[in-house]
Design a protein around this nucleic acid. Structure first.
Lengths: 146, 146
DNA sequence: GGTGAAAAAAAATTTTC
DNA sequence: GAAAATTTTTTTTCACC
């Protein structure tokens, strides 16, 4: 992981479909060299995947909620499995502290929020925050931007 | 946004570098047709970007914390700007409720957590949860998986 | 909105330093 | 470990339905 690798990651996180040639030109190397570096970055599990940044709103999901979930006694595993099955849950972490889970949920409306929460309401206490704006839009953490 | 578009989004969210030809073969169309559809999906801001899924751990950031932040009276804007400047903050949302912000922070160690929190400690109350495991790994929400 | 074929561009392979 | 040249593959363009 030298400076060139970091630069490749920076460029690809802006446009993952950049051609090897464009990447090569940007960092001042040859295409085969870039191809080999990308392969190594994937083999070393630095690059997990080339993926999409999708606009949820443009697809009919204008609301995002952050839900903290505290399962009732004995319900932890059931709740965990349930969260994995709910497609609106775009991300969920098991965390330390009183709230066991923090989930990021994509929604069509406030009514939709109710529908989703109803699926866990009898197995956990929940605390919901509606996202009003994105202060920091998801970015690939220090290692790429620094 | 027909079924073919949805299928393209599904395929590209697994591998954003798939060639037009491969995509064409998968959905049973010609390459030019796929090229045009991808262009439209970008123009309509459905696809925001082709990007990377990076492994923070492989790059020396083995810890993730979810921090709820409640700025002290009059400090909201200062805190917001500060959060945007901290590179460890990979994502931050302004939310409803008592906690104004929820941030996702990538860290090298527990000591590193202290360093980051010290930058806002005199301007806000914070509540930190350490991520123990990912119950649902970030996925592109209902519209792609359903 | 789509196809199919040709031209242009890019990627992978091999050879070379 | 990287560059250059060749072959293969992909992307783009264009005429057409």
């Amino acid at each position: 992981m030298d400076h060139t690798d970091q630069e490749l990651l920076r460029l690809l996180s802006i446009d993952a479909r950049m051609s090897l040639k464009s990447l090569a030109d940007e960092v001042g190397m040859s295409s085969p060299a870039i191809a080999e570096r990308l392969q190594k970055l994937q083999e070393n599990d630095v690059i997990r995947a080339f993926t999409l940044d999708l606009n949820a709103e443009a697809m009919g999901y204008p609301m995002v909620a952050i839900v903290r979930i505290r399962p009732l006694p004995g319900k932890l595993l059931v709740v965990e499995r349930l969260l994995q099955e709910i497609p609106e849950v775009a991300e969920c972490d098991r965390v330390t502290g009183d709230d066991c889970f923090v989930a990021r949920v994509y929604l069509r409306s406030i009514q939709h929020l109710d529908e989703v929460l109803n699926r866990i309401i009898d197995k956990a206490q929940t605390s919901t925050s509606i996202v009003k704006s994105q202060v920091v839009k998801r970015r690939p953490a220090p290692f790429v931007t620094e």
